[in-house]
Write a protein that binds this DNA or RNA. Structure first.
Length: 495
RNA sequence: GUCCCCAUCGUCUAGCCGGCCUAGGACCCCGCCCUUUCAAGGCGGAAACACGGGUUCGAAUCCCGUUGGGGACACCA
């Protein structure tokens, strides 16, 4: 098929854990590579010493792994074009910057931050585009020596050619930038570290990437990068700028809004499955035929293509993610589902303390059944059985236990439970139905008060599964405690 | 402000190399069924081509403009 093997990369800056947008970018790169026998690299862009931390790097790596994404080259795994941390490539950037200087394609700049800032302000006030004014552009060696002697900071600026730049983008077509879109920009800071655009181009070229798939926020920087490729004498990779993921108010999602989760780790903590998140993320900007939307990772690898990635920004739709997570959860065999719930609760330090925890969680997961939308829902719906202490929701108490006939129902049911020889959902249900016929009470009227008495809430799993989960002893105790409410309201909640 | 990108139901989207579209699917919402609650499931419904000009026999689909949204204009990435 294709002659040149595909090489792509995901290049996060380790200034926090993995953002949902970054995860989607990583996913598209990964799908693209895996679908055509290509290679994927992880490059850590840690040139911002202030904000980069090794903890963040670890967090990003953990999140990517959790999602099931892997890479062939990177900081830990190595590879032919390492090192893969930009902080370990300083000499390379220096050397390349010097090369550009020697060729007069770049030059040392001695302007201070204050001077730059003042000129920027002045330009803005005058209604001009704030671009570098070229103060140091044509200094001769003597003048440069003078400034060095003054002890001024020395950075290196790229001499921008006065011509338009064309970015060939696989998703957007050719994007043309006018000649005066950018002024001379810094490529090597006075502290010796490269700026983003420079390090990025030097590395992307050195690491032989064939495709640069990244977020749209980089598109308006790509004219700079195109100039740099040319100056450095390297061929450009194919670019693909995928559109941004937006908040419901259409602002960029990486700018946090309220309590909305924006990090992969948060979705993990909320009980989402990696395969559901992957499937959902894949559909943010990509589609197969507009009809099918449930895809296994293998299918995504097989079907993904940049041709079917659209250019429209996408608002993150939490409801749909939740729905999809439920689909994945419910499709899992019970044992597997319960194992995931167990792992999730263990990770969060919320495992119920009991000897038969595995068996208990499997029964609890089964009881919660189709209500399950996130791993957190088992505790959400069956938490009443996790321990002895539970509270009856005051509103439910008022509305259900307060109804006439409720107490009689509880008393009758408590008697039935004590006498029932076998404590299994099916048996309990059969007996309870007999009871309702005998008493001439509708099943619902008989069961509903018990649900509240046993779980403390109106919304819960099926009544007989609830009983079975609690066991005979706790069931009886809670039922009896609830009947005591009429005499002593506080007693019921102590069961 | 300048430059760049984008524009189909509330949201994700299909359609966009023009007629097959009285615009399809999914989430959400509403109704009905099932039902001891809540879900899940089944059935049905509401809901969109931003606007204005062209081009054409014919435009959601092509072109221009307007409007709107977003991004970028740093010795952050």
């Amino acid at each position: 098929m294709s002659e040149t093997p595909v090489r792509v990369r995901f290049a996060p800056s380790p200034t926090g854990s993995l953002h949902i947008g970054g995860a989607r970018t990583a996913l598209f790169n990964w799908l693209f590579a895996r679908g055509r026998e290509g290679l994927m690299a992880l490059r850590v862009e840690d040139t911002d010493v202030e904000r980069s931390t090794s903890e963040s790097e670890r967090a990003v790596v953990d999140d990517l792994r959790w999602l099931g994404l892997d890479w062939d080259e990177g900081p830990e795994v190595g590879g032919p074009y390492g090192p893969y941390r930009q902080s370990e490539r300083k000499e390379i950037y220096r050397r390349e910057a010097n090369r550009l200087c020697a060729a007069e394609l770049a030059y040392p700049c001695f302007c201070t931050d204050e001077e730059l800032e003042a000129r920027r302000r002045a330009a803005q006030a005058a209604g001009r585009t704030p671009q570098y004014d070229g103060t140091c552009r044509d200094l001769d060696e003597e003048e440069r020596a003078e400034r060095r002697a003054e002890g001024r900071p020395e950075s290196i600026r790229f001499r921008v050619p006065g011509e338009p730049a064309v970015v060939r983008d696989l998703i957007r077509g050719d994007v043309v930038f006018p000649a005066d879109a950018v002024g001379d920009f810094v490529i090597l800071r006075s502290n010796g570290l490269p700026t983003y655009n420079f390090a990025c181009v030097v590395d992307d070229a050195a690491m032989r990437f064939t495709h640069v798939i990244r977020g749209e926020e980089h598109l308006s920087n790509t004219n700079r990068q195109v100039f740099l490729y040319r100056a450095l004498g390297h061929p450009e990779p194919a670019f693909a700028h995928i559109s941004l993921i937006l908040n419901p108010d259409r602002s960029k999602m990486s700018k946090r809004k309220g309590e909305e989760a924006t990090f992969v780790s948060e979705f993990r903590a909320q009980g989402y499955l990696p395969e559901a998140l992957i499937n959902f993320l894949a559909l943010l900007g990509w589609s197969w035929d507009g009809e099918r939307e449930m895809f296994s990772v293998e299918e995504l690898v097989e079907k993904f293509s940049l041709e079917r990635v659209n250019a429209t920004p996408a608002v993150f739709n939490r409801d749909k993610l939740e729905w999809m997570n439920g689909q994945y959860l419910r499709a899992l065999p019970l044992a597997e589902r319960a194992a995931r719930v167990r792992a999730y609760l263990a990770e969060r330090g919320r495992l119920p303390e009991r000897a038969d925890v595995d068996e208990f969680l499997e029964r609890a997961t089964a009881a919660v059944g189709d209500r399950l939308k996130t791993l957190a829902d088992v505790e959400g719906y069956a938490g009443f059985a996790f321990s002895d202490s539970f509270e009856i929701d005051p509103k439910a108490k008022e509305e259900v236990l307060g109804k006439k006939g409720a107490r009689e129902s509880l008393v009758a049911l408590a008697g039935m439970v004590e006498e029932s020889e076998r404590f299994e959902p099916a048996v309990l249900e059969a007996r309870a139905r007999e009871l309702s016929t005998k008493l001439g009470v509708k099943p619902g009227d008989l069961f509903f008060p018990a649900r509240v008495a046993l779980t403390g809430r109106k919304v819960a799993p099926g009544l007989f599964e609830v009983m079975s989960l609690l066991g005979r002893e706790r069931t009886t105790r809670r039922l009896k405690a609830a009947t005591a409410w009429w005499e002593e309201p506080a007693a019921a909640s102590r069961a």
